[in-house]
Amino acid sequence: MADRRTHRLRLWTSAVTVGVILLAVLLVPPLVQLDEQAVDLSRKLLPPSWDHPFGTDDLGRDLLLRCVYGLRISLLVGLVAALVATVVGTAVGAAAGALGGWTDRCLMRLVDAFSSVPHLLLGIFVVALFRPGVWPVIASVAVTHWLSTARIVRSEVLSLRTRPFVDAAVSGGASRWRVTVRHLLPAVLPQAGLAAVLMIPHAMWHESALSFLGLGLPSHQASLGNLVQNARSSLLAGDWWPTLFPGLLLIVPTLAIAGLAGVWRDRLNPRRRSELML
């Protein structure tokens, strides 16, 4: 079946790409004892070569090394922010869905209020409150990204809450807390997990946008957004490599993670069960 073959190809390409990226960001910095900040003005703006596969930047720093460090920071920000946003979103969504009534109304109006402000604006507002650093950026991403998870979880919980198995649990003496923790949350966790994975690239883009605007991480620190920002001037001079490689490193993980998440979503599909029709 051709369908199954493309499916498998997608799974493997995505998995291998994500694997390589993870290995690179985890192993390269501790193993390769090179300083990504080492300035060598004699070798500035060299095009890609064997010595410098990604070329060098306007201060003569090796771009491959800086890209790996940049990806490391961006991934870290993406992962932590997605995790925080998912935990907050799931908690708020589950509380709104399971408790209903006034709690639900208040929480969802809060979500609406947050959604009504443009995300980037809200993000900029948060980072502006603190000194530049990793944590304000993470907070900024988390604040703007928990909303969709809260909505997804709430709607799932609402639809589950009317199922007879919840009635049966209530009749069996289960408290509201127990129904939520034992029957409702486990049912929505796969969905929330999927949303979290899909959020990682989104958070990376958000971080890059902030850094590109000069509001994210300190500009000497190698993050993907800072790399693109620093390369802007050289791009006008016709040097393409300082922009291309960080840009690619933003796009490739996004596609790979989306591929993995797609496979996961197919797995979640309850229709798989009906293959037997018994």
């Binding site: 007879p164 198995f165 009635d167 049966a168 649990a169 009749s171 127990r178 029957h183």
Partner: peptide, 28 residues
């Protein structure tokens, strides 16, 4: 005690039959 019409929707799909039967005891 209640029994509903459709067992498919009345049983938590993530639990085993033994867990489904024991659930009221665990909940109390």
């Amino acid at each position: 005690g209640v029994v509903f019409q459709q067992p498919r929707t009345a049983a938590d799909p993530r639990l085993t039959l033994a867990e489904i039967i024991a659930e009221p005891l665990r909940a109390t």
